[in-house]
Write a protein that binds this DNA or RNA. Structure first.
Length: 147
DNA sequence: AGTGAGCGC
């Protein structure tokens, strides 16, 4: 169902799935701040910039790292893939990461796998956020979410 | 919990 898909979708994609934006496109709608003309093209919704690493969500709990790798390998050379699992229970958390050799392959991986079915679930593939170094603290200003 | 949004050690 579309509602299930929308519920499982990341926030960035929900605008795509919920296309009833007619009531929100009214100029008199008070909660939509009109973007200043000539403003910077920085997106209000934080989307990670294109990079070879993908964040894949909406996975079935049964989907394994091997399965993830072989499905995404149809669209490019996968240098690394991992389904994130709970360390004590060993069960999948329902998301994972796929790293391609190049950004071009990552783009094809998104086009080929985003919104597609994998083990019975609609999965979502997008560019992963850069992971902070191990044991290194991050500056708040350089993080995603707020500029 | 096979709990359904999410960003990994």
């Amino acid at each position: 169902m579309t509602t299930r898909v929308a519920a499982a979708a990341p926030r960035v994609l929900r605008r795509f799935l919920c296309t009833n934006s007619a009531s929100f496109s009214s100029p008199s709608f008070p909660f939509i701040p009109s973007p200043p003309s000539g403003a910077a093209p920085v997106p209000a919704r934080p989307t990670a910039e294109p990079n070879p690493n993908l964040f894949v969500s909406g996975l079935s709990k049964r989907t394994t790292t091997e399965r993830l790798r072989e499905e995404f390998a149809k669209f490019g050379e996968v240098v690394h893939a991992r389904v994130v699992t709970d360390r004590v229970s060993g069960y999948s958390k329902g998301f994972g990461f796929v790293q391609y050799a190049t950004i071009e392959e990552a783009a094809k991986g998104i086009e080929g796998m985003d919104g597609k079915f994998l083990d019975g679930w609609v999965i979502f593939a997008e560019y992963a956020r850069p992971r902070p170094r191990l044991g290194q603290h991050v500056n708040n200003a350089t993080q995603y979410g707020r500029q």
